[in-house]
Design a protein around this nucleic acid. Structure first.
Lengths: 132, 132
DNA sequence: ACATTTAACTTTTAAAATGCAAGTTAAATT
DNA sequence: AATTTAACTTGCATTTTAAAAGTTAAATGT
């Protein structure tokens, strides 16, 4: 994706403006997934070629990194970079939006409550948890 | 776009998970654009058929509304619904992310500073400005 | 040691979405 | 009455996506 404009919103969409990239980031961030097969088993079931090309683009864009698993050389371990972790506030706002406009979804109440009452603390805590 | 899963992030992406929808919302929100031709003149230059189909989908999804301009019956006036306005925090977080990871873009410093220091106030002010 | 399974892809083919240019329709302007 | 404007729609070539099957290297089971 070439840069389309100097707009900061357009810039983010140049990186993750599709149906899948943010779900990969979500899985790395919230669900402790780290391998290709982990990622393939999300509820949304993305096709393997799409997963492959998105991982390549996200790595090229500096949002995730890849390394070989020292314990099992067949495996590759995907991790969020700092730039990837910093997508967290965007995801949190998406969760809040859905809690308001699609309240029938599976959203833990505590998460919503804390997001309203102590957003900064929540994001800090989640960031810490992701980074370790 | 059918619902892919019960995930609140996936749900938002079902509505705006593409390269264009959030740019339409941005233009309605920040730049006072209200008509088809206004929207066609963004820096990113989306094709007319894509603009047309995105407007239709956003309206179907309840993020924007359409009405005839009483002064000029050729024109249609597009507005954000409450659900559309509530995408604002997501856009603000995208702006903040770009200010950190693509600092060479055109982002007003005051906006970034206020977003860091008084995020809630900023969002409230912007929401008020959008709604009138 | 050999066969099987697992992980991470790649390839193929078909369907859908996108991008560009040109055309259409109704309303407003000259 | 002729022209221009606004909001589309249509046709067609290109690109992207989806689904299924195939490949390769490493690990596991017998």
């Amino acid at each position: 994706m070439p840069t389309r404009s100097q707009c900061p919103i357009s810039n983010v969409l140049d990186h993750v403006g599709d149906k899948w990239s943010l779900l990969i980031i979500r899985d790395l961030m919230f669900f402790g997934k780290h391998t290709y097969s982990d990622l393939q088993n999300s509820d949304e079931k993305m096709a393997t070629n799409i997963l492959s090309s998105r991982l390549e683009k996200l790595e090229g864009d500096g949002l995730i990194s890849k390394q070989l698993d020292p314990k099992d050389k067949r495996k590759k371990i995907y991790r969020l970079t700092n730039a990837g972790v910093d997508m967290l506030p965007i995801l949190v706002e998406m969760i809040i939006w859905s809690s308001k406009y699609a309240p029938d979804l599976n959203i833990p109440n505590e998460l919503i409550d804390r997001a309203q009452m102590d957003r900064a603390g929540l994001i800090e805590d989640l960031t810490q948890r992701i980074l370790q």
